[in-house]
Amino acid sequence: MAAIQVNHLSKSYGSFQAVDDISFEVEAGAVFALLGRNGAGKTTTIELLTGFRRPDAGTVRVLGLDPIRDRAQVRGNVGIMLQEAGFFPDLTAGQTVEIWRDFTPAARPASEALELAGLTAKAKTKVRQLSGGEKRRLDLALALLGRPDVLFLDEPTTGMDPEARRDVWEVVRDLAARGTTVLLTTHYLEEAQQLATNLAIMDRGEIVVGGDMAETLAARVGRVSFELPSVVQPGELPLPATVRGKVAVVQAADPDLAAQTLLSWASERGLRLRGLEVRTASLEDLFLELAHNGETAQNSTTTRDARA
């Protein structure tokens, strides 16, 4: 049975449709990344999955249970890191963890939770004196306290420095390897690519792309870019290219092969391709491509509206 099952889930705020008929499943032990631009509906989705909000339509099952009706039971098995929540500013990080342990049956020792979150050195610091990234770590420590089976992380590494971020990745990978199911959102696409086995990209409340990370990326094209030599017209290149300013971009399913073709073409003519870059499909390309499509769609709607 999948650890998280979402079926035709919808939620609106007034007349604004924040989540629009989405469905997906997350297998136990998988790491699932929920991506999308600001306002796409990620946090709303997480709040629906964790029982903070009631769906307008559709169903949610976490470990087979309804997060609202069976809240107590669900909460006993999940860890939640909200995008935004407060702390008691006058308590220290250590005191906060200690107090949260009182709320949590069979909690990890405080020192272990602080260690996992990389916050041991700050245990005696008041929360109001913690930096943004340190607060985020404290958030993580609290989410991990109860050794949850399912972990919801809403932008877990926002505000963390690169090293801290990598530490968190390590922790998440480690937990996933031991069978914890993780659903996370992030704006760092590298993070999603590094951690997630599955993904869904949301746009205006809908899932526009979803599935297995490797398969989704394999279905996308890579790209080769270089400075177009001044003596060459784009039409003369051996492969179709788009030119923006001085830079020519060739899209290809196999970018390595395309690069080889271009290089041998150039050496036959005694030309150099400066600034040559070969990139396999990345989540970022996919993301930008989607955003671009989204904008065009939106523009055409506006024009239509304007004409009507």
Partner: peptide, 17 residues
């Protein structure tokens, strides 16, 4: 105050009812 600071929300993210 705790409601505004999203502290009640955080408490609700725990196992407390």
């Amino acid at each position: 105050m705790r409601r505004d600071q999203l502290l009640l929300k955080r408490l609700r993210a725990t196992r407390l009812t």
